[in-house]
Amino acid sequence: MRPSSPSPKPGGDEAVRERIIGLGSGSARKSYYPQLKEKIRDLEAKQLELMETVRTLEERESELERLVDEKEALLKEVHHRVKNNFQIVGSLLNLGLGIASSSAEARAFAKTKRRIDVMAMVYGRLLATESFAELELCSLARSVVNALFYEAELREVALAYDLSCVDLRLDVERAIPFALILAEAAGNALEHAYPEGRGELAISLGFARDAPGSVRLAVEDDGPGPRSGGLPRSDSSLGLTLIDALAAQLKAAWRYERRAAGPGLRFVLELRP
């Protein structure tokens, strides 16, 4: 047991007495209210802060949306102008066609015009679908071949499609070479495979079963085949040179082969994954 020293009474007995009977400063009965008020104030400040953050984010989002809209409008405008330019070039070529001095010259104009039209078509489809990044391949293939087919006026040639294009899309950089290659192959068939004006042109497009991930395009006619007997090669015409160059752009392989069932030629393009 150790004696405790008397604790000093600050301010003396009178001050202690005042505080015990509740008259000292700060000796009021305490309340939760100030603490609650402070908590509520804190929460309200936090809520305001959060609302401000949300407002800022909303503003930023609508600004981004506005920018995206603006970009889309600009892109659309650019594509529109490109398409118009192609159409102007096409019209110029049309004029040239009208004043060509020889049939060979006229054919050259016509072929060039056809290529320009294909490129204009790609941009036309981009504008129509409003998807400026990618194009769906099957409908593009159908449009390209249909245009050539109706221009060729081969009423007794049947046109058959076997297109299976779930999720088959190409960006515009690659859609143009693809469309041009298809137009060259189909144009060649329509020009050379039906001397009698009869037969069938079969277009197939889809994932290759024997090469996983590869997309295979085939253009097959049932015509008499090459006159000289050899299969067309990359150096045998401007069209084939073009196909070769465009396929290289796509890092794709192409070939002509004989049709399996009877006479006729088959053009095959393989786009690797």
């Binding site: 047991m1 004696p3 405790s4 020293s5 008397p6 604790s7 009474k9 007995d13 009178e14 202690v16 007495r17 015990i20 009977i21």
Partner: peptide, 19 residues
């Protein structure tokens, strides 16, 4: 005397009628 010192330090003593 230890008890007395503690009692004098107790706050209750200040309101006693006689110091």
């Amino acid at each position: 005397s230890e008890l007395a010192a503690m009692a004098l330090a107790d706050p209750c003593v200040v309101t006693n009628p006689r110091r």
